[in-house]
Nucleic acid binder design. Structure first.
Lengths: 251, 251
DNA sequence: GACAATTAAATGTCTGACAAATGAAAATCG
DNA sequence: CGATTTTCATTTGTCAGACATTTAATTGTC
């Protein structure tokens, strides 16, 4: 681990990079304790605050965890699925909100990914996953349900569908699609959508998965994607109309 | 933005969380300048080193960038696709290496995702993407190619396939699958694989995509997945045999 | 008006210190 | 001797103040 004081990068960034590389390469193993902050500052030839800044960077990426006390210190953290989900969702949310992604592009990506899951889900779905999907579809049919709750239930339905594939790596990869894109899409379409239509499609999907009919599952997911795009289009059309009439009045 | 000094969490973590929330919620917009470190330390009632640790956490997630000098400071960073790719790849690599994911699980996830892309790629592929795939397949057929270069070319081939879908969100989502899983899988299978067989499959895939034959593309990708699994199985069998014969000698 | 020197503001880094947590060792008591 | 309590050393968390470095705006000069 060598540090170049003349480099353009911050010392703390260089130190964080060196430790990160050691973790990724396996030189530092899970649950292994790093040297104390004082020792690290000696090793790298920098002050303790600088080392601390480097450690905070790594902590923010869930690469290490710290513990106070006599036997405390910084330990290489095992990156758990929930940790990875969280990062995935945060990154996806920010990426979409900061990059002016068209609705169509996001929707296409989201359903392409979910349809990749579906064949596995139809094959492996358990009673548990089916029960969750049924329960959420049922909840969505309740008349008094708030828009927020409907959206949350929508997410839960799709998460159950994805988890039914019984592949944690796939569930992780789809976390961004389901938990970041779906809410964003809901925010756009919720004014125009017909809950009955969505519940009917969700029920049809659950039926197809229960019957282990991959072809029908795919068809209904495609319908749901098409309906979502249709909704977005009508919302955008309505907005365009409104702004046109506004400018007409003002002129 | 309020901070609770009695909370269990570090002050720097609380401050980082408060600023992160402000960014995600849109209270702080892209390229907006945060108050200076001194002002932040006054606002939150903590010292400057503590504020700095919080800012380093955010910097590690590419949420802010800092600039020195008179008009410098911390700015809300626009999360670019390359940034997001990088995080995705790092997280995926660590998740796989730390969680004892079976080869089968990883391979299944990876090909499910790529096959989700393929129909879009067959529809939208440009001459550019086709040329890249052809060039990489050609490179892979060179006799003197090192294993590292073959692996890198393999990744480049699949990245071109994914990018041909012309959906940046999908490309981002698949970055982990292509750039993290593919190299890991290569590390396991490279001793046993037949380069000819892989080049033939890559060529068949490129042909199918050029012909815009989605069905054939999917079939060849499935073959590639099956062959990869087969290779891994043979490697694992050989390892098991070797360790069995070893223990037989020693007994 | 163009160019050079100065200045102010901000981050980057260091030193030294104290507080708080925590496990281990030592001391004490039954 | 065994169990409990106390002490203590170690480590992270936080603070204060200072100086170095970078950078752009300002000022001064020709």
């Amino acid at each position: 681990m060598k540090i170049d004081p003349d480099s353009n990068a911050d010392l703390s960034a260089q130190i964080a990079g060196a430790i990160r590389d050691a973790i990724i390469s396996g030189d530092l193993r899970v649950d292994e304790r790093l040297p104390s902050e004082s020792e690290l500052s000696d090793q790298f030839g920098v002050s303790r605050p600088t080392v601390r800044e480097a450690l905070k960077r790594l902590g923010a990426q869930s690469l290490i965890r710290t513990q106070r006390g006599a036997t405390g210190g910084a330990f290489v953290n095992k990156l758990t699925y929930p940790d990875a989900y969280g990062q995935q969702i945060t990154t996806s949310t920010l990426l979409l909100s900061m990059n002016a992604v068209s609705f169509q592009t996001a929707c296409e990506a989201r359903y392409a990914l979910e349809r990749a899951c579906a064949p596995l889900s139809t094959k492996r779905r358990t009673a548990d996953h089916l029960a969750t999907m049924r329960a959420e579809a049922h909840r969505q049919a309740q008349p008094g349900l708030s828009d927020e709750s409907f959206c949350a239930s929508d997410v839960a339905f799709h998460r159950a569908l994805v988890d039914a594939a019984d592949n944690p790596v796939l569930s992780y990869q789809l976390a961004g699609a389901v938990e970041a894109m779906q809410p964003l899409m809901n925010m756009i379409t919720f004014t125009a959508r017909s809950r009955e239509r969505i519940v009917a499609l969700h029920t049809a999907i659950a039926d197809a998965i229960e019957a282990q009919d991959a072809e029908a599952t795919d068809r209904h997911l495609e319908e749901l994607a098409a309906y979502t795009n249709e909704l977005a289009q009508s919302v955008f059309d309505a907005r365009a109309k409104q702004s046109a009439s506004k400018s007409g009045v003002s002129s």
